[in-house]
Amino acid sequence: MYLNQFLFLSAVLFCIGVYGVLTRKNGVLVLMSIELILNAVNINLVAFGAFNADLGGQVFALFIIAVAAAEVGVGLAIVLLIYRNRRSIDVTEADLMKG
């Protein structure tokens, strides 16, 4: 087993996730795409953990899963708030950060 096969899978997932984040309008779909990115990172961590026979990779993958849970929780709360205020979760319409 090549190390690269895992890393490439991770890279592909990551880029698909980025594509999703950049093209989706729906806030929930953006959050899902972010999950893809996080999973790509996790694959990387676990693969290197196995490669180096080190537990750190898996441990940090677990931490990232926990962080992802937190992120989805807060992210969904924000999406809900946007929805409640605007009756839409189209993130392209949210431009409150305009300077």
């Binding site: 980025v18 984040v21 950049l22 993130v91 392209t92 949210a94 431009d95 409150l96 950060m97 305009k98 300077g99």
Partner: peptide, 13 residues
Amino acid sequence: QTGRVRQYATLMF
């Protein structure tokens, strides 16, 4: 500075 998060994300990536 459009204020659109997506555009920022695009630029960032």
